[in-house]
Design a protein around this nucleic acid. Structure first.
Length: 491
RNA sequence: GGCCCCAUCGUCUAGUGGCCUAGGACACAGCCCUCUCAAGGCUGAAACAGGGGUUCAAAUCCCCUUGGGGCUACCA
């Protein structure tokens, strides 16, 4: 494939969700695969819905996932500007040319009139459709309306016969009767173009080779074909990627819970895992492989392997995959990802505020192997390891009492345990384990009985990392102190 | 309502006329391992929406039905 130029063209009207970003991801992958260009274009032609925050969110989302663009706002490029509001005059010129060539016309039908037209059609069970009344308006009439302050739009003249067809790369030929399409607005009364006009013009001017967008655009593609024809533009390749649905099978939206990419970041998901997971929603390499690096995805990616049916977002599988990625990182790599979270001031994901920052990496790196295979998201970590930092272990007598034994027996055995902790030559997990197993044998109890009690004594938790590795990391002094405290509690 | 798109286990998917007794993964269940929890290993349950064609042969091609989704704005 030659000169692949693809764009991601979000409109800054909200925080980009998984579906938008998955589309961007596919476009990015295609560009990378063919050494093409990936372009970011901001489609801010709707000034009513414009939300300045969302442009930032779009950029942050893309950066996080590693979807770097070659051309775009700020960084520029040879086909700028890349923000549609800054291209306003281009669209106005083109709309005027279309009018001059008789392919479009001014319309002074008011929104109220359109509203009542639609209402009328609905009552008569007709499909709501603009009736082309503006075609009959004279220059003079439009001029008068304009002077009176009536909003004027520009509409494209659409033939009411014939068929419009196009090839979609994932579905094949799609055809529709021209009479299904009315004379639609291409320039709004605020002189901003509609999406239809703006993106066709920009894609052409920016030499976009593949229009990669979501399936919801299929039904308006015939309009875009019409604009191409009116302007004598050659058609790009159309690639309509399947929608991502929520668990209720409707188009993913806010009511499906967290849908924004940044939300997943916040929840402790890893960018590479999300990238991998998203790439598999609506695409597969054609075999059983699921854990793929970016490089593998790029080299395996083919447009004709994109699915035509929509996919439901399965959080369970994302969590599993995130766990796989966590386990796959070296301790060093994991530290980089984990440290900022543990140091976070946010109590729900960070270590208690009482623990002083920055965290000592040489201590942290000893803890990480113990929890690596026990977490699915980064956010679960601090709860699992806080006792390594916080010496204030909370316990109940019931936790410490060795199962099936009474308190005096418990105290006696825990004292023996302290002796072991005290006397052991080297404070290594293997040696600790064999010594405590020896004690268990002498006392004729089950390993689990003693170990559970010790686990509570050291961590205050029922569920914790392996006991002897934990002891080794904590070190002799802390272990003795904590077991002593447990004995005190039982007394 | 009209138009368009889609249809394999609960979910993501493999499958492009014979390799299908339909494969993998997540989730689920059981077992093993085991100091808890995980991780790991093994096993299991689980799908071609229905009906017609075409063909020696259909999950795969065609048609209809059903179901789902999308669009139907001076929003994108």
């Amino acid at each position: 494939m030659k000169n692949v130029r693809v764009r991601f063209a979000p409109s800054p009207t909200g925080i980009p969700h998984i579906g938008n970003i998955r589309t961007a991801l596919f476009a990015w992958i295609l560009a990378k695969k063919h050494n093409g260009k990936f372009i970011l274009r901001i489609e801010d032609t709707d000034q009513n819905r414009y939300d300045p925050q969302s442009e930032l969110a779009i950029i942050e989302s893309m950066n996080w996932l590693g979807l770097a663009w070659d051309e775009g706002p700020e960084i520029g490029g040879n086909y700028g500007p890349y923000r549609q509001s800054e291209r306003k005059n281009i669209y106005i010129d083109i709309a005027e040319k279309l009018i001059e060539s008789g392919k479009a016309y001014y319309d002074d039908t008011t929104p109220e009139q359109l509203e009542s037209l639609r209402k009328h059609q609905k009552e008569q069970k007709l499909p709501p459709r603009y009736d082309g009344r503006g075609r009959k308006r004279t220059e003079e009439q439009i001029k008068k309306s304009r002077e009176k302050g009536v909003p004027i739009t520009v509409r494209l003249k659409v033939p009411d016969f014939g068929k419009i067809s196009f090839i979609d790369k994932v579905r094949g030929k799609i055809e529709i009767d021209a009479k299904e399409i009315d004379d639609f607005v291409i320039l709004k009364s605020d002189n901003m173009p509609t999406y239809h006009l703006a993106h066709v013009v920009d894609d052409h001017l920016m030499k976009i080779s593949h229009v990669i967008r979501a399936e919801e655009w299929i039904s308006s593609t015939p309009r875009h074909i019409l604009i191409h024809q009116a302007l004598n533009y050659s058609l790009p390749e159309y690639v309509h990627v399947p929608l991502i649905l929520g668990s209720d099978k409707s188009k993913l939206s806010k009511r499906h819970g967290s849908t924004s990419v940044l939300e997943y970041k916040k929840q402790g998901f890893i960018n590479d895992a999300l990238f991998n997971f998203l790439s598999l929603l609506g695409w597969s390499p054609g075999d059983d492989r699921e854990l793929l690096s970016k490089e593998e995805i790029i080299s395996e990616f083919e447009l004709n392997k994109i699915n035509s049916s929509s996919a439901i977002f399965d959080l369970n599988k994302l969590e599993w995959m995130n766990g796989v990625y966590i386990r796959g990182y070296s301790n060093k790599e994991l530290i980089e990802k984990i440290k900022p979270i543990l140091e976070s001031e946010n109590e729900s994901i960070g270590l208690p505020k009482s623990i002083k920052r920055p965290l000592d990496e040489s201590y942290l790196i000893k803890i990480i192997p113990l929890i690596k295979e026990r977490i699915k998201t980064l956010n679960e970590i601090s709860e699992l390891i806080d006792f390594f930092y916080d010496n204030n272990i909370k316990n109940t007598v019931e936790n410490i009492i060795i199962k099936k034994l009474d308190s005096s027996e418990t105290i006696r055995i825990l004292n023996k345990s302290i002796n072991i902790l005290n006397d052991i030559k080297s404070f290594k997990s293997e040696l600790l384990e064999s010594s405590f197993r020896n004690l268990v044998e002498i006392e004729k109890i089950k390993p689990g009985q003693l170990f559970t009690s010790l686990r509570f004594a050291l961590s205050g938790k029922k569920i914790a990392p392996p006991l002897f590795e934990t002891m080794e990391v904590l070190g002799r002094a802390k272990c003795i102190k904590r077991v002593s405290n447990a004995i005190m509690l039982v007394k």
